[in-house]
Write a protein that binds this DNA or RNA. Sequence first.
DNA 1: GACGAAACGGCGGGACCCGCCGTTTCTACC
DNA 2: GGTAGAAACGGCGGGTCCCGCCGTTTCGTC
Lengths: 188, 188
Amino acid sequence: MPDHQRADARRNYARILAVAEDEVAANGAAASLEQIARVAGVGSATVRRHFPTRRALLEAVSRQRIEALSVRARELTGRGDSRDALLEWLGEVVAYCVSARGLAAALTYDGAGSDPVHDNACSAALEEAAGPLLQRAARDGAVATSVTVADLITLIVGIVLATEHHPDHAVRADRLFRLAVAGLSPRR
Amino acid sequence: MPDHQRADARRNYARILAVAEDEVAANGAAASLEQIARVAGVGSATVRRHFPTRRALLEAVSRQRIEALSVRARELTGRGDSRDALLEWLGEVVAYCVSARGLAAALTYDGAGSDPVHDNACSAALEEAAGPLLQRAARDGAVATSVTVADLITLIVGIVLATEHHPDHAVRADRLFRLAVAGLSPRR
DNA sequence: GACGAAACGGCGGGACCCGCCGTTTCTACC
DNA sequence: GGTAGAAACGGCGGGTCCCGCCGTTTCGTC
């Protein structure tokens, strides 16, 4: 009945995840796995057993945030002006990525992942949730139909990554995001 | 006459730089400094003596490209339509960053650098060279006057970093760049 | 209560970055 | 052209990290 997992395993999983959240929040996506193991009071092998890759750990840490963003996307779908709704949501994605260290890294596509199937659960979830939001905006002519959710996520992640080490990265990221939304040099 | 540097030091500097170019081209910005030392036939301490930080090495490796882009910026300044000239140059920046591994990393601002003065020689050079190009475009109303060269560089670097691991990162980076130029959702 | 399997964690290996320090090598001066 | 001093070198040890192995412990079931 333990959902095909032993009780101590589940306990350790929770402990590690809790510690990892703190460590990633403190040290970003490059947080030390051994440090996490040490603080959690487990062997480093146990950490890797539960989270085979750093990405897996980051995705687990980011999971709540991703779900919150997914919920928000569904909330905003069909509510108010389609352009405003989309931009509101994208703005929240920026804010989340800026405030939650490691989230942007969790959303980056990693082509090195030899697993071609479910290579990135986080962005996959967001893509699914935000699809309708984007489609509605495209139907209303607010964005080009060729633009995908993955494009928007990648662009935001890039902005966040590039501004991460700036003194006031939050305002810089927001600034660049607005610039990209309005267009660097849109044809009139 | 040895420019206040011993002959063997200059020789080693050149050897290390040449090897570093190959290694960075092959393995990206995370190339192993020890591997570079090994191939160059010097001790790893010598590498660090000439290039105290990884960033210093990346900047040195990127130097020719940066200068080429600077020259190109000056060439394009005042030539043809100001908007076209700026976009042409920015497009070349994208192309360079995509083709020359490590260049994007060399252009990223690193706030952790305790040296507040000349924290990033590469982007500083580009900013200076491209300033007039941007100003002319701004005067002609092609871009908002509040936009800086640093903004544009940071945005491009972000796009490149975020697409770096994609299968066809060159086309994806170009695609996102065009999207940002045109505007994600420009007000009509 | 005992047995089998799942989970654990310590250990060794390899790679890396870093600082130290004795030694080599160049250069300027005699 | 030889030599003294300084500049440069590079090997060594330490610390951290990620990874795989494997004997041991602990849990769940019968």
